[in-house]
Design a protein around this nucleic acid. Structure first.
Lengths: 230, 230
DNA sequence: CATCAGCAAATTGTTGACAATCTACAGTTC
DNA sequence: GAACTGTAGATTGTCAACAATTTGCTGATG
């Protein structure tokens, strides 16, 4: 058996995961309202499959915490309260700080690659800010942080963070927050990147902490004049 | 309809979750070898149910990362390499440090309750150390850290930590590590509790960090003379 | 008129059967 | 004898039908 370059296994990923990934994207983009029930039958027919694989995918998202399952009643989209926002961003700070420490400790090629990727994202972000494309901005915002954590090279941190990122996007979309501090958005991310490349450990931690705190403030402020929250 | 205290919904949890919880416990206790395939049919008959619910539970554990799914081949118990040990304990340090910060910031009744619970666990741990009951010691070790994180009152941190705790137990069991530093085990946990109650922030962070580093050292040392690892 | 029992529709939970795929082994060919 | 091919068994993936439960409605009853 000779190894052939450029060939890869076809559709290697399990079906339930593919469905779960699609559905997660739909949910964070607001295709379902918070608290809304997910009907297995209609979802199955939309995906032109049967209820079996759909149920398996739904269980994955329940384990992830994006959906909640109630026995004999079905699965529902997670409803976010103010307390949830605080939880999510506290957890994000924990993960990002650890990723930052790992990036600084590594301090090699992978760190430089991460820096380049982050630089590119910031450039795109500035472009979209000029165009006021909120959807794109939100996506790039998350791309920045996801790339940051990915740079740490810890697959568990990454898996954890992907869920937190999805929940953050749910917050942002459901609250229809249009980045009130749009002017400092690019600046804040650039600041984090600068501190990373400068190897300024303590200030980087502080910058991450402030970034998260500000996000919580914006989201909680927005949640007060929003019918979704209690 | 009058509200009755002390009553709760009977068997409110969904089936897939119940099966997943049982199976997770079996796995971390070493009922399945790392890399071993989980046969859906035999598992279904053991639980006297059909393959449907079993598959749903398996998907949950795949999402959690304790099992890995390969298309058209089935699900297998996660194989832990040395790199995984480092990942798990780095993530645990992140979560526990954040929980510690939250506990210190709260500094109220919940913090005191957590302290009492931790004290009780340490007392039991000392008892089991005297009896050399390794299984019980490992369980109490995890109980301590789980209780610690639970005290922070962040459900997301808790959910994350439960998976990491499960993976830690897999490490400990599979490597048959019998706590080489048995004499300092109680002491180390007592030290963490003392620093928490004293409100000594920086030293508490350092103690947690050291606790995790030592665990990684013990586990990696044990993994070198073990056929499971490469 | 309020309340409650009972019924009907919809949805989830479960099951067994069938199809697709992989693995291992035997047989064949060079 | 080595390597390849083909087949048989086992296991997973998928599906449609059936059972159980919940929910909303209807109407009887005080």
């Amino acid at each position: 058996m000779t190894a052939a370059e450029g060939l890869f296994v076809l559709e290697g990923r399990p079906t339930a995961q593919l469905i779960a990934d699609q559905l997660r994207e739909q949910i964070v983009q607001g295709a379902f309202r918070p608290g809304e029930q997910i009907n297995e039958s209609v979802l199955a027919s939309q995906l032109s499959t049967s209820r079996g694989p759909v149920r398996e995918a739904l269980q994955r998202l329940c384990q992830e915490g994006i959906l909640v399952s109630r026995r004999n009643r079905g699965v529902f989209v997670l409803e976010l309260a103010i307390e949830d926002i605080r939880e999510i961003y506290a957890a994000r700070e924990a993960v990002e700080s650890t990723a930052a420490a790992a990036l600084l400790d590594a301090g090699s090629k992978s760190t430089r690659d991460t820096g380049l990727a982050l630089k590119r994202i910031i450039r795109d972000m500035a472009k979209q800010v000029a165009l006021s494309d909120w959807r794109a901005i939100a996506r790039l915002d998350m791309d920045f942080h996801t790339t940051f954590v990915a740079g740490a090279g810890n697959s568990r941190l990454m898996r954890i963070y992907e869920t937190l990122a999805a929940e953050s996007r749910m917050c942002i979309f459901n609250l229809e927050v249009s980045y009130p501090r749009i002017d400092v958005l690019v600046e804040e991310h650039q600041n984090i990147l600068d501190l990373l490349e400068a190897g300024n450990r303590e200030d980087l931690f502080k910058a991450i902490k402030r970034h998260m705190q500000k996000a919580v403030e914006d989201l909680t402020a927005a949640s007060e004049d929003n019918e979704i929250f209690a």
